[in-house]
Nucleic acid binder design. Structure first.
Lengths: 218, 218
DNA sequence: CCCCACGCTGAACGATGAATCAGGATTCGT
DNA sequence: ACGAATCCTGATTCATCGTTCAGCGTGGGG
């Protein structure tokens, strides 16, 4: 049993990961409703039967795919936030990170899919809850730090964190749906302006760095 | 041809409306992905074939159902907003109206469904765009009125309208997903607090009326 | 060297559900 | 009253997938 994991036996595991990645991709492209086993197989360059072989069922594959995205989220979050930085700087990073400039644009569509699925599916609901709690806590810690160091003024840190997180969700919807009123490149500023108002800090401190280089993803 | 609309001929039309209402109900319960012709028929108390007879196809039925919800939205909006009222009062009404206290709680799930569908379907995207534009404009007019009468102070009315609308969407997601951090009855206050901050008005003016009578829908 | 567990596949199965169809009933114009 | 159009229905057709299955190759352990 242990022999399999020895040398060239990485191939099967590798294949499995490929399928998982393909599942994530399909999920982003077609959503939960439109994702077919055949799509995943095609995207991974294998046969539909193999997908079922590795993950017992389609729902299983999608669920595990979602889990991998969750892991990525935590990883990205941990490595993107400079632990040694002023609260204002941290807030700016949080803003940019959340406003799709960080990971991929298509990620927000995926979250929206998760929301809708969470309306009926308990597992999806739990996933989203965990993700959101983590995100809110990040925000919350940043706010507390800012208040402690005197950069922010805020009556109710928790309520502010909830509102700023919700605002980000709401703005993301507009961006994902390509609302002309909320072009992708304005989202960050829009959010930071609200943050500035909520936290009673002058905007100039947040927007100091202007536009950043082109895109990150093809 | 005109004769059909004369007297007792209302029955067919009535039946059709019933099916439409049933479609809306099913859409709220199961979402786009889960809505079956059989469900709609059962909910309306007729046969699946009749659904197809009136609306050529399932998608057609769902689309028309969505249209009827759109109409309801406009109607509700028009009749709920007192044209003769101060901007502050109007803002409060808007907050309560948008925060699901007005129509039905389940409506927000429906909007979320529409968002996700709009990711891929042009018609849904157009619908949402129209709805959202209308809502934002309502907000915008209220803000402008408030600024004109000196109740509000606001640097960029349009950006503020966009943000407040987005915040409402975001909060609605939390409520629809029953996030413990955003209980249904806190949503309105949460939103009004942000509005107060954005528009530079003392909270007291907005929250004067405390809790309102129970629910409106079963 | 053999064999067997694992990885993998194409083909077949079965369920689900949208849409069609061939009529029955009802209503309406004349 | 008598067609004819409109409504309506049960049964059927047809396509789409998820899942199962029987078997093929292969590489590592006895």
């Amino acid at each position: 049993m242990t022999s399999r994991t020895s040398l060239a036996a990485k191939a099967p595991e590798e294949r499995r990961r490929r399928i998982l990645a393909a599942a994530v991709e399909v999920l982003k492209e077609k959503g939960f409703a439109g994702a077919r086993i055949a799509d995943i197989a095609a995207m991974a360059g294998t046969s539909p039967a193999l997908v079922v072989y590795h993950f017992k069922t389609l729902d299983g594959a999608l669920a595990e795919a979602l889990g991998s995205v969750e892991d990525d989220f935590y990883t990205d979050l941990a490595q993107a936030l400079p632990p040694k930085a002023g609260a204002v700087e941290r807030l700016r990073v949080i803003g940019e990170l959340g406003c799709d400039t960080g990971p991929a644009v298509g990620n927000w569509s995926l979250w929206m899919e998760v929301w809708v699925r969470a309306l009926r599916d308990g597992q999806a609901r739990a996933l989203r809850r965990a993700l959101d709690a983590r995100w809110r806590q990040t925000l919350r810690e940043c706010i507390d730090a800012g208040v402690a160091e005197g950069s922010f003024r805020c009556a109710d840190a928790q309520a502010t964190a909830v509102r700023l997180a919700a605002l980000m969700d709401g703005l993301a919807v507009q961006v994902a749906l390509r609302d002309p009123e909320v072009p992708e490149d304005r989202m960050t500023d829009l959010w930071l302006e609200s943050a500035a108002a909520e936290l009673d800090i002058p905007l100039r401190q947040l927007i100091k760095t202007k536009r950043r280089p082109p895109a990150k993803r093809p």
